[in-house]
Amino acid sequence: MPDMNMIKSLNSALSISLKDNPNVVIFGEDVGYFGGVFRVTEGLQKEYGPHRVFDSPLAEGGIAAIAMGMGLNGLRPVAEIQFADYIFPAYDQIVNEIAKLRHRSGGEFSAPVTFRTPAGGGIKGGHHHSQSPEAQFTHTPGLKVVYCSTPYNAKGLLLASIECNDPVIFFEPKRCYRGPFYGDPHNVPTWNGHPDADVPEDHYIVPLEQARVVREGSACTVIAYGTMVHVAEQAINDSGIDCELIDLQTLVPWDRDTVVNSVKKTGRCVIVHEAPKTSGFGAEMSASVQERCFYHLEAPIQRVTGWDTPFPHTTEWDYLPSPQRIAEAIKKTQEE
């Protein structure tokens, strides 16, 4: 199998979707001729034509609404929002319209739309090219929310999302497009040689609603998604504590069995995400774990998150959860 970085594996998923299903169309800002500012759609317009892969006007609200219209009339649109920070003009269309279409029409209408959007920090993007707004969508019934972390799961999850009949918000950790990120900005590897860069050329699915156990362990369950999966892995190695690392992959609906069984086994839990703490997805995880595993917990659940502040530019390494902060939280669960 060829080595692919995440950009190539996402591109492969999109190409397969276009080839396999004539009703798949791809559009968004700069995605057509240029192939997207992160090059995820590179070459697709040339191969599949300008009406299947096209540049849209610069209007996220329009992009979302057009996607819904196409979706309810037989197409399977995959729309790109150039940065997750720019999804908010589309928020009304996504939250009030697309998410609720199936329910409010008594099941008569639905729109199988996938919104791909690069999210997260670590690229010196400041307030508006760094945010991780997943919680703003996990709080919206009707949407499935996916967050990939490696080239392998990116491709399989994206194919599953496109083939899903419900609307999906698909977050891509842009810090990990070209390599995993272990929390050290001065040492950034590529995906070359990484086991998760071993990506089949052909179609495969990584099922939605299933978490991935990255590493088995007995002392503590660490739950993460996106870039933080890799940072947490580093923290576990640094801590020397035998943790189980779970990559959620799908946030809604999340994989209850994998998480609950793990916490029941370890009795300890650390949740990591880069979005702010207050009302972050970690709050949902923490509450759910407490409800389901209370009598197995040996220590308070820890959350390691971005701060409750706007995402900074020059000081972003003080904002993002670091391996040190995560390792400290893991150690704290061992003290009680």
Binding site: E29, D30, G32, Y33, F34, V37, F54, D55, P57, L58
Partner: peptide, 11 residues
């Protein structure tokens, strides 16, 4: 030009 998108593609 809006990044790579010429005005002809956008209106």
């Amino acid at each position: 030009w809006a990044i790579s998108t010429h005005a002809n593609l956008a209106t």
